[in-house]
Design a protein around this nucleic acid. Sequence first.
DNA 1: ACGGCTCTTTGACACAGATCAATCGGAATA
DNA 2: TATTCCGATTGATCTGTGTCAAAGAGCCGT
Lengths: 246, 246
Amino acid sequence: MTAPSLTHVKCADCPIRHRAVCARCDTDELELLDEIKYYRSYEAGQPIVWSGDQMDFVGSVVSGVATLTQTMEDGRTQMVGLLLPSDFVGRPGRSGAAYNVVATTNVMMCCFRKRPFEDLLDRTPHISHRLLEMTLDELDAAREWMLVLGRKTAREKIASLLTILARRDASFGENGSESEAEFDLPLTREAMSDYLGLTLETVSRQISALKKAGVIVLEGKRHVLVPDMARLLDEAGDDSDGGYLV
Amino acid sequence: MTAPSLTHVKCADCPIRHRAVCARCDTDELELLDEIKYYRSYEAGQPIVWSGDQMDFVGSVVSGVATLTQTMEDGRTQMVGLLLPSDFVGRPGRSGAAYNVVATTNVMMCCFRKRPFEDLLDRTPHISHRLLEMTLDELDAAREWMLVLGRKTAREKIASLLTILARRDASFGENGSESEAEFDLPLTREAMSDYLGLTLETVSRQISALKKAGVIVLEGKRHVLVPDMARLLDEAGDDSDGGYLV
DNA sequence: ACGGCTCTTTGACACAGATCAATCGGAATA
DNA sequence: TATTCCGATTGATCTGTGTCAAAGAGCCGT
């Protein structure tokens, strides 16, 4: 993972890569952000913050994948968020982290020191407006996931996860092809099971089943090819085409 | 359900009843809110908004209980939110509802016409700040619930739900007694099952089991008495005492 | 090339919760 | 008082997923 390029620092590629605070990259406020901004990289497997720790920054993922997990005393764990590039981490207004944040691949974060960022929020309505919008999006995603966890079968759960990964990957790639997809799994079977509320064995079995059914093709253990997205969506019991909100 | 009293309209009792926008009830902005505010009541069982509908207001629950649910084509449904007094409904910035909102008891809503409310948000930083905070709280609640849905047993799920209801009820009542609780179940067994990702039969069986174990006492089918909250928390596998956030 | 890792796959079996079905209880209506 | 209706309970059985266990597949360092 190399240091971010100057063009990135200048947010030339922001609307996607860095959507947290750069929705209006051409404005003056960016100068302010630049002053309190720094980059930090984490290696695969490394914790970014631990539940309960003090957290003196907020930021967004520039590259790589991180996870948000919650754990019970007896060790049962549930992933409550999957942080892909452009996703935001941190809560202005509170100091303690509520979840474990762990890098599952090498991760580059763009961070803002928390206090100055909060000050900036107070002074800059459009940034706080943007933050509200992002939070509402996350809330929708969490609720969507509640349906997955509460009502879908193991097979549907796997298909739902693959769909999310395919969609997110596609939105960053150039191939607008809706019918097929290809991407790397950034998660181990265990991490997938934590996200889906399953065991890793069930995850493995269902992936094998989807492979046998021809819905997906695996190259190695981590690279997935979906010849026909419609079939995957069908497996996922998915009816959403975006457009949420209450 | 009677019309709200004038004192309520004036937000004399706001900090709890009406936390959406009245965190600073003593300020001038309240005047502005009053102008775009109206009350609306719904009968038990009545839909408030339907997924996909246009939604021209936001607001908060003054009394009663409403639910937010999501449904798949084949009828499987998952509740994604339980709206108790003081909870906020609606998303400034988007017009379509993403979930079904249904009154499960008689409900009194305090509504704000959406457009003027949005304008007010733009002009009044502390209100939009408050809204962000509330949204983050909801996000935490959703994530907490993901753990319940993904990793807890049927018995723990029931206990978790009862705990939430007991806590919310207590915060509005006067008895600060932490050790025992008493409240009405505002939900049918079926609604509980939709919240918990279970069937109504399993809900019924587990409630019977908790009753037999002496953890709860039922008076009729809807009134619950918890002689020892610690035991219930124990059943719920609960370790949170509030204080969240990432 | 060789262990020694970690991650993954696959198998055999057990069990929590789903499904199907019957009955019960209380409130509303006649 | 009888009737209906809807929600709740309880029982019998089935099944999807968890649990426990063994073995395979890469990958790294020596």
